[in-house]
Amino acid sequence: MVYKIRDKETGKVYEVTIDEETNEITVYDVKTGKPVKTVNMTIEELKEAGYEVEPV
């Protein structure tokens, strides 16, 4: 599923895909559409880390 996340401190917005089964999150560069990095976190962990998470 695709989400937009926003860093509450910097205001930067990222587009991510989240595999609900493995909790693998792939972060994409919004301008190029290319993957930047992959992390292993849940949506709740993202929120605790200071991100706003919205489904696209």
Results as ranks from 00 to 15, higher is better:
1 M>Y: 12
1 M>R: 14
1 M>T: 11
2 V>W: 15
2 V>S: 12
2 V>F: 15
2 V>N: 11
3 Y>P: 00
3 Y>S: 02
4 K>V: 13
4 K>Q: 10
4 K>S: 05
4 K>A: 05
4 K>I: 15
4 K>G: 01
5 I>P: 00
5 I>W: 04
5 I>S: 00
5 I>G: 00
5 I>K: 00
6 R>A: 04
6 R>E: 04
6 R>G: 01
7 D>N: 13
7 D>A: 04
7 D>S: 09
7 D>R: 02
8 K>N: 05
8 K>W: 06
9 E>H: 13
10 T>Q: 01
10 T>E: 01
10 T>I: 01
11 G>H: 03
11 G>V: 00
11 G>K: 03
11 G>Q: 03
12 K>C: 15
12 K>W: 09
12 K>H: 10
12 K>M: 14
12 K>N: 10
13 V>N: 03
13 V>P: 01
14 Y>I: 03
15 E>I: 15
15 E>L: 15
15 E>C: 15
16 V>T: 01
16 V>G: 06
16 V>Q: 00
16 V>I: 15
17 T>M: 09
17 T>N: 05
17 T>S: 08
17 T>G: 04
18 I>N: 01
18 I>E: 02
20 E>I: 13
20 E>T: 14
20 E>N: 10
20 E>V: 12
21 E>L: 11
21 E>K: 13
21 E>R: 12
21 E>G: 09
22 T>A: 11
22 T>P: 01
22 T>W: 05
22 T>D: 03
23 N>T: 06
23 N>C: 08
24 E>L: 14
24 E>P: 01
25 I>Q: 01
25 I>N: 00
25 I>T: 03
27 V>N: 01
27 V>T: 03
27 V>A: 05
27 V>I: 15
27 V>D: 00
27 V>G: 03
28 Y>V: 07
28 Y>D: 00
28 Y>E: 00
28 Y>L: 08
28 Y>N: 03
29 D>S: 06
29 D>L: 03
30 V>K: 09
30 V>Y: 12
30 V>R: 08
30 V>M: 11
30 V>C: 14
31 K>Q: 14
31 K>L: 15
31 K>D: 14
31 K>I: 15
32 T>K: 02
32 T>L: 05
32 T>Q: 03
32 T>P: 01
33 G>C: 12
33 G>Q: 06
34 K>A: 10
34 K>I: 10
34 K>N: 10
34 K>Y: 11
35 P>V: 14
35 P>K: 13
36 V>Q: 05
36 V>D: 03
36 V>P: 01
36 V>L: 15
36 V>K: 04
37 K>M: 15
37 K>W: 15
37 K>T: 11
38 T>L: 08
38 T>F: 11
39 V>F: 15
39 V>L: 15
40 N>A: 11
40 N>L: 12
40 N>K: 14
40 N>H: 14
41 M>S: 06
41 M>H: 04
41 M>W: 08
41 M>K: 05
41 M>E: 01
42 T>N: 07
44 E>T: 09
44 E>S: 10
44 E>W: 11
45 E>L: 06
45 E>T: 06
45 E>K: 08
45 E>F: 06
45 E>R: 07
46 L>R: 00
46 L>T: 00
46 L>A: 02
47 K>E: 11
47 K>V: 11
47 K>L: 14
47 K>D: 04
48 E>H: 12
49 A>P: 01
49 A>M: 13
49 A>N: 09
50 G>V: 03
50 G>A: 05
50 G>Q: 03
51 Y>S: 01
51 Y>T: 01
51 Y>K: 01
51 Y>Q: 01
51 Y>W: 15
51 Y>M: 04
52 E>P: 02
52 E>S: 07
52 E>V: 07
52 E>G: 04
52 E>Q: 06
53 V>F: 09
53 V>K: 02
53 V>N: 02
54 E>N: 07
54 E>H: 08
55 P>K: 11
55 P>H: 08
55 P>A: 12
56 V>S: 09
56 V>P: 07
56 V>W: 11
